[in-house]
């Protein structure tokens, strides 16, 4: 029997994307990015003064990311406040975005990126990175390029992109695999690599290839959202 994804998508299909900027008027830059039912919003504040002072770097500005879930974005209410998981995702998101930023113009300052997941259906960190990348651009921060992010996964032996929660919970055959990636748009530079599950080493190239089409679609959605606000 041919493999079929739970929601009927082709292996290389993303869920419908929603992308929008300016969703938080108070922020210097802001964006919303959604993969289907996974909705992330991001706000950028800064460059602004970094407290405490001992963390300041006189040679460059610093990127500081905070990622978290709204308590009711998941079925079992998440206790408000940072968890180990959210702290780790905050850090890998910081690492995923920093390579495109040039903050030398802003010594001693911080660029704060706040990412919150309003509704979670897997792929929250990748949606968060996409939203944050747009929000940084919207805040006018000097950056080489946009960053695009998507999770590739495996359902038994099939490589698929942008898994839903139901797909992540799949437990047939070789089980589920979640392989979130981020890449600098239009380059072959990867800024996020994480994996949970089982990917045969010889199939890594296949994963990167299937992700490429997804990255291209995400980039187009980000670009369109940034431009349409000003045309």
């Amino acid at each position: 029997m041919a493999f079929k994804r739970i929601d009927g998508r082709k292996n290389s299909d993303l869920r419908p994307i929603t992308a929008k900027i300016g969703v938080i008027p108070n922020a210097d830059g802001s964006a919303l990015f959604a993969f289907g039912n996974t909705i992330a919003i991001a706000a950028v504040y800064g460059p602004r003064l970094l407290h405490p002072q001992h963390m300041q770097d006189p040679e460059t500005g610093i990127l500081r990311v905070n990622y978290d879930l709204l308590s009711f974005s998941v079925n079992d209410r998440k206790k408000p406040g940072p968890s180990r998981r959210s702290q780790e995702i905050s850090k890998v998101t910081e690492w995923a975005l920093s390579p495109v930023l040039d903050l030398k113009e802003f010594p001693n300052t911080v660029i704060d990126v706040q990412i919150y997941i309003i509704q979670a259906d897997a792929g929250t960190r990748t949606a968060g990175i996409n939203a944050a990348s747009m929000a940084l651009a919207h805040a006018g921060i000097p950056m080489r390029n946009l960053v695009c992010s998507v999770a590739v996964g495996k359902q038994d032996k099939e490589i698929v992109v942008d898994l839903t929660k139901a797909e992540e919970d799949f437990d047939g055959g070789e089980g589920p695999t979640d392989f979130p990636l981020a890449k600098i748009a239009n380059t072959d530079q990867y800024t996020l690599l994480q994996l949970d599950g089982k990917i045969p080493a010889e199939r890594v190239s296949e994963v990167l290839t299937i992700a490429d089409q997804a990255f291209a679609n995400i980039y187009e959605a980000q670009k369109k959202a940034l431009k349409e606000e000003f045309s």
Partner: peptide
């Protein structure tokens, strides 16, 4: 939770 997202 008065998220730092919502206001400087």
């Amino acid at each position: 939770d008065l998220l730092p997202l919502a206001s400087p």
